[in-house]
């Protein structure tokens, strides 16, 4: 499989009067064509800012991508002008958000919101766009798609709105779909339906997906590979099955609980004592050292590197350097 997206040493920082918040701090990962990569991590670990960095939509003022490369389909997105990025967003890379209730514009009809993307990126007529919108709504599971088209978002439930968001995101046939916690705000039964739909669509459209989630059940269901983030960095990268079988990093082990097995129902991130350190106050050495049960002296002073422990498996921990993971 060839690589679609390659993120190298990505740093997105927030700045206040005299403080720097290294919210995303040297991220390396890649996404292959057609694969689903999950990014997991506790709240505040920088998952959303990572996805917004890829989109070039880091919240302004305050936030800025200060270093790195985001090579998408051969071009570094960070080197593109804003004018060139307009053609990428919504067209080559689409995104859906955690908040289906508020992510649609309340004063525009569903039809307007889907067709406007198509007309803008694909330069097709209003009529063609409308037909395409009907097709898309059918694909995401609306039986009476024509009627939905003229409805306003407030008439739809959360699950239906997320379906509309998905239809909108898929409308231009993107090469990469970024889904930032697409099911977190939904009822459990609706969650399952939306996940089923996303799985379906990723095959149908042959898009790569970056799936951001808290929910390890979702990861097990959908992802091919997993990236575990902690305090703005990748701490572990792994194929899905191996991660559940044998998590390498102490943080991942904590997340999965003491006896991690993929066949055991391990749905939620298990709680680890302590809190994620705030970005303006990261520990000097290993960022997990304040909570790690295996913390050693050198962990306090030095930062471990992300190293390939086994082929295709990376972890950021001194334990592996000693060869006794």
């Amino acid at each position: 499989m060839s690589t679609l997206l390659e993120v190298k040493n990505l740093k997105t920082h927030f700045f206040s009067k005299n403080k720097v918040f290294p919210v995303v701090d040297g991220l390396d990962f890649n996404v292959k064509k057609g694969e689903t990569l999950a990014i997991v991590g506790e709240s505040g670990s920088g998952k959303s800012i990572t996805s917004l960095s890829i989109m070039g939509l880091v919240p302004k003022p305050g936030g800025k991508t200060v270093a790195g490369e985001i090579i998408f389909d051969g071009t570094d997105l960070l080197s593109l002008s804003e004018n060139e990025m307009y053609k990428v967003r919504g067209n080559d890379i689409a995104m859906i958000f955690q908040e289906p209730m508020t992510s649609l514009n309340p004063v525009l009809t569903i039809g307007e919101q889907i067709t406007e993307v198509l007309i803008y990126h694909k330069k097709i007529s209003k009529k063609e766009a409308r037909q395409r919108a009907v097709d898309l709504l059918k694909i995401v599971g609306f039986a009476r798609a024509e009627e939905i088209l003229d409805d306003y978002p407030h008439r739809l439930s959360g699950g239906m709105r997320q379906r509309v968001m998905i239809a909108m995101a898929m409308s231009c046939d993107p090469k990469l779909l970024i889904a930032d916690e697409p099911t977190t705000a939904l009822d459990v039964t609706v969650q399952a339906q939306i996940l089923e739909l996303m799985k379906d669509l990723s095959h149908k459209f042959d898009s790569s997906i970056i799936l951001i989630t808290h929910d390890l059940g979702v990861v097990a269901e959908l992802a091919d590979r997993v990236l575990v983030m902690y305090a703005g960095q990748v701490v572990e990268e792994s194929e899905i099955v191996q991660l559940f079988d044998n998590p390498l990093h102490p943080y991942t082990q904590g997340l999965l609980g003491s006896v991690p097995k993929i066949n055991e129902e391990q749905e939620r991130l298990s709680s680890i004592g302590g809190n994620v350190p705030s970005p303006d106050n990261f520990p000097k050495g290993c960022r997990f050292s304040t909570r790690c049960p295996h913390v050693m002296e050198k962990c306090i002073e030095n930062q471990p590197d992300l190293i390939e422990v086994y082929p295709g498996r990376k972890s950021r921990c001194f334990l592996h350097e000693e060869g006794d993971s």
Binding site: M55, L57, M85, Y86, K87, V88, R89, G90, N91, A94, M95, F97, E99, T102, S103, L104, N105, P106, E116, V117, Y120, H121, M165, M168
Partner: peptide, 14 residues
């Protein structure tokens, strides 16, 4: 600051 504005930006609009 609303979410739908972020959505509009994510769609690639100027």
């Amino acid at each position: 600051n609303q979410d739908y504005i972020r959505t509009a930006r994510a769609k690639g609009f100027r």
